Simulated assay, not measured.
Amino acid sequence: MPTFKTYMRILLAHRIYIIIYLVIISITGIAIGLSMASGSSQHFTATSSRVAIIDHDDSKLSRALSAHVAKDNTLVPLAGDKKSVQDALAQDAVSYLLVIPKGWGHDLMVAAGDKDTTPALEASVSYRSGEGFLVDQEVKSYVQGLYGSASLGGSQGDVVRTTDESWDKSIGVSTIGQRATPLPSSLLSAALFSSYPIFASVTVCIALLMKALNARALHGRRVASPQSPRERNVALVAACVCLALIAWAWNFGLQVTLLGRDAIARSPEQLGIVGLALLAYSLVSASVGFLVGQLGVSENAANAVANIFGMMLSALGGAWADLSLLPDALVAVAHFTPFYWAYRAIEGASAMRVVSTSSVLPLVGCVGVCTLFGIAILLVGIALGRARTRQLG
């Protein structure tokens, strides 16, 4: 126990790195998540297009068509002269202009009876927007409805009534609900971003701890002490794990408290997988710090390794940009990095639609792969430490 406390005091002596890497950078990730949360409250609203209708026919069919076009759009009054039409299109006063020629209704009834083509309409679409094109497609669909109803016979009034009844009929649809509530995108962004502060803070602090312990003078006093090597090693591992747990608890605790409080009740399984993935990556970071410390690097070198490798692993893992945006060669390399597997677990938990054994086990397997990276790195560090001990001895 006294040895463990000594190791923790050495770690706290480098508190400036804890403040910079762990506290400040972690808060940056939370700020990113909060900004996404504030921007995710947008709601869809249908766009009302600006349309103008010039009806030279004034038949029941043309009036029905005019009413249908004006129903869900903003009707712009427009004179029927050529100059007004040209000015409206040139100045983008309307997105869609419909001109119904004289005799159009009668010609459509005749064409439907003779199985001929529908009479043409004069339509103009604004060059600045795609809204007019969508209105034009709806106009053509409604005209085809009039044509189909007219082919059955009856007066223009009957054709309009039949077409409107058919148009207003809706097909019953239902939405398949998700049994699992998705995690907030803000929480996902903060969790992915936290890979960098976790790695940087844990790696640099443990590396500096190992540097202090491996100094020749301190190493000699440790070896000469009555404490067994096993007890010293257990205390060292406990100190490294403790720092990794502190970094994990700080980051994940902030994320849950500020961004995922609702997910505790709604999505506990997914939230647990995210926390497990970050915990595994924290332990990997501790293993990397242990290895770097065994190499006996300087303080500046430890900072360089923590920053460069921290950013590189986060980038390859998908924390900075979606992996689909990366070249195939980099994606292939990413498979051999620990955070790639943690990323797969976090993303899979966020997108999980149904909580079941078949959906959870693959994500737990990804966390396991990430943990294996940490074990392998730790074994390399232990082997290197034994070699250094024999040299110093």
Rank of each mutant, 00 (worst) to 15 (best):
V204R: 10
T181K: 15
D114I: 07
S126P: 04
L187I: 10
E165D: 15
S201F: 00
W167D: 14
K115A: 03
A190Y: 03
L121G: 09
S129K: 07
V125M: 05
Y196N: 07
T118S: 14
T163G: 12
A150M: 04
S155A: 06
T118M: 13
F193A: 11
V125Q: 05
G132D: 05
T175Q: 11
V110N: 04
T175L: 13
R128Y: 04
V110P: 02
T117A: 11
L134S: 07
Y142L: 08
V159I: 12
K169R: 14
S151Y: 02
D114N: 12
Q144W: 03
V139P: 09
T118C: 12
A200G: 08
I171F: 04
L146R: 02
S185N: 08
L188A: 07
K169Y: 01
A191E: 05
K140Q: 13
G132I: 01
V139W: 03
D136T: 09
V173R: 01
G153Q: 08
T117Q: 12
E122C: 00
A180V: 14
V143R: 09
L183G: 05
P119M: 01
A180T: 15
V160R: 09
S149D: 13
V139M: 07
E138T: 07
S166M: 02
S195K: 12
E165P: 05
D158A: 14
Y127Q: 14
S141G: 09
S185E: 06
Q144N: 15
S185C: 00
W167A: 15
L121T: 01
D168Q: 15
I176S: 15
K115D: 04
D164M: 12
A200L: 07
T181H: 13
V110W: 07
L192C: 10
Y147H: 14
G145T: 08
D158V: 04
V110D: 10
D114F: 03
I176T: 15
S166W: 00
S170Q: 04
S185K: 11
S126C: 07
A150K: 02
L188D: 09
T203L: 13
L146V: 01
L146F: 09
G154H: 06
L134F: 09
G157W: 02
W167Y: 12
F133I: 00
F199R: 08
T175E: 09
A112P: 07
G177C: 00
V139H: 04
T175A: 12
A200H: 04
V135S: 08
T181N: 10
L152E: 10
A123D: 06
G172P: 14
A191G: 13
G177F: 02
P119A: 03
T181S: 14
V204P: 03
G130L: 02
S195A: 15
D114M: 06
L192I: 03
F193H: 12
G154C: 13
T203C: 15
I198F: 02
G148A: 14
T117S: 10
